[in-house]
Measured scan of single mutants.
Amino acid sequence: DATRCSICQKTGEVLHEVSNGSVVHRLCSDSCFSKFRANK
């Protein structure tokens, strides 16, 4: 199964994995990581 970025939905390489309870968010770049943090 292809890994997909939680923010931009791009498949491919994942730079960050953030687990939040039972959910793991995968983020492909620092910019997506920043957006993820801002959205929480």
Rank of each mutant, 00 (worst) to 15 (best):
C8I: 00
K35S: 12
E13K: 11
V14C: 03
E13Y: 03
H25A: 09
K10Y: 03
C5L: 01
K10M: 06
F33N: 12
K35H: 11
S31K: 14
E13W: 01
S19D: 10
D30R: 06
R26W: 07
L27V: 06
A38Y: 04
L27I: 09
K10V: 01
T11F: 06
S34E: 15
H16D: 04
F36I: 11
C28Y: 00
S31G: 13
S22P: 11
V18K: 06
D1V: 14
F33V: 12
Q9A: 02
S34N: 12
S29Y: 00
V18R: 04
D1T: 15
R37W: 05
R4Y: 14
F33K: 13
A2V: 02
C32I: 02
E13P: 06
F36L: 13
K10L: 05
V24D: 09
S34L: 11
K40D: 14
R4D: 12
R26E: 05
K40Q: 15
E13I: 03
T3Q: 15
R37C: 10
S29V: 02
K40L: 10
R4E: 07
V18M: 06
C32Y: 03
N20Y: 09
S31N: 10
K40E: 13
C28N: 01
G12N: 03
S29H: 01
C5G: 00
E17H: 05
S31F: 08
N20E: 13
A38Q: 10
Q9C: 07
K40H: 15
C32K: 01
K35C: 00
C28H: 01
N20G: 07
D30A: 04
T11Y: 12
V24N: 09
R26S: 08
R37P: 08
E17S: 08
D1K: 15
T11G: 09
S6V: 03
D1Y: 10
G12K: 09
T11E: 09
V14G: 10
H25G: 08
V23L: 05
D30F: 02
D30T: 07
D30W: 00
K35G: 10
G21R: 04
S29K: 02
C5F: 01
A38P: 04
R4V: 08
A38W: 04
S19E: 13
R4S: 04
T3V: 04
C32P: 01
R4W: 02
E17G: 02
L27K: 05
A2E: 12
V24M: 13
T3R: 11
V23Y: 08
E13H: 07
C28I: 00
C5T: 01
A2M: 15
D30C: 00
R37G: 14
V14K: 03
E17P: 01
L15D: 06
L15G: 08
G12A: 11
C32R: 01
F33P: 08
S6F: 12
L27Y: 11
V14R: 04
N20I: 13
E17F: 02
V23N: 14
V18P: 06
C28L: 00
V14D: 06
K40T: 14
A2N: 15
C28P: 02
S31H: 08
V18F: 10
L15S: 13
G21W: 01
T3P: 02
F36T: 08
S6G: 06
D1A: 08
A38K: 06
T11S: 05
S31P: 11
K35M: 13
H16E: 11
T3S: 11
C32N: 01
K10F: 02
V24K: 13
R26M: 09
F33H: 13
C8N: 01
G12S: 09
K40C: 15
S6H: 09
S22M: 12
K10A: 05
I7D: 04
S19T: 12
R4A: 07
H25R: 05
T3Y: 11
I7L: 08
G21V: 02
N20P: 02
V24Y: 09
C8M: 00
S34M: 11
F36C: 03
D1H: 15
K10P: 00
G21M: 06
G21S: 07
S6E: 09
K40N: 15
D1N: 14
N39W: 08
V23D: 14
R26L: 07
G12T: 10
E13Q: 11
H25Y: 04
C28Q: 01
S22L: 07
S34P: 09
C8K: 00
